[in-house]
Amino acid sequence: MNSLRRMLLAASAALVMLTTSAVAADANVAGEWDLTVETQAGTGNPHFSLKQDGNKITGTYKGMLGESPVTGTVKGNEIAINFQVNAQGTDLAVSYTGTVDGATMKGTVKLGDLGEGTFSGKKAGG
């Protein structure tokens, strides 16, 4: 009975350690971000102000497409940010997906049906 109790205690401790490690592994993306976006239509320099609650992201986009609230997720070092804008009378769903490495991030951006591009940037002050 003692050995069963020890095994259960060891398994519980291992589960707690794994859960803590998984939570701690999410990148910290809260803050101000300055990005450079490259598309066939040209280059832009959007600014994101992001807040993070666990793996959920909220915030604001400001750039060539105007200003919009954003939502997204961060899982480990993978980030996804989404928002909607009205560009010249057309509703446009914009999505950024990529990776975070400390105070930098990079990846791809999809501009609804208008096309795709790449982005890279860094956390302001980072």
Rank of each mutant, 00 (worst) to 15 (best):
M1A: 11
M1R: 05
N2R: 07
S3D: 12
S3W: 04
L4R: 09
L4A: 15
R5Q: 11
R5N: 11
R6S: 15
R6E: 15
M7P: 00
L8G: 10
L9K: 04
A10Y: 06
A11R: 14
A11N: 09
S12D: 10
A13E: 03
A13L: 12
A13R: 01
A14N: 08
A14F: 12
L15Y: 08
V16Y: 07
V16K: 07
V16R: 07
M17Q: 12
T19Q: 14
T20W: 10
A22Y: 13
V23S: 12
D26Y: 01
D26L: 04
N28S: 14
V29E: 00
A30R: 04
A30N: 00
G31Q: 02
E32T: 15
W33H: 09
W33T: 13
D34A: 14
D34I: 09
T36H: 05
V37D: 04
V37L: 03
E38R: 12
T39Y: 11
T39I: 08
A41I: 05
G42K: 12
T43M: 08
G44D: 12
G44V: 01
N45R: 08
H47A: 12
F48D: 13
S49C: 01
L50S: 12
Q52T: 01
D53E: 14
G54M: 07
N55K: 14
K56I: 03
K56M: 04
I57G: 00
I57F: 03
I57P: 02
G59F: 09
K62I: 06
M64D: 13
M64R: 15
L65T: 09
G66T: 05
E67S: 13
E67F: 02
P69I: 06
V70I: 15
V70L: 08
T71V: 10
T71M: 03
T71F: 00
G72D: 06
T73Q: 07
V74M: 09
V74E: 01
G76D: 13
E78Q: 09
I79S: 02
I81N: 02
N82R: 11
F83E: 05
Q84S: 11
V85Q: 11
A87E: 05
A87W: 03
A87L: 07
Q88G: 00
Q88T: 11
Q88M: 09
D91P: 14
D91G: 10
L92G: 04
L92Q: 05
V94L: 13
T97P: 06
T99Y: 00
D101Y: 00
G102M: 08
A103W: 00
T104M: 04
G107I: 11
T108E: 15
V109M: 07
V109E: 10
K110L: 11
L111T: 01
D113W: 03
L114D: 09
E116H: 05
G117L: 09
G117N: 09
F119G: 00
K123L: 06
K123N: 04
A124W: 03
A124T: 14
A124E: 06
A124I: 05
G125H: 07
G125R: 10
G126R: 06
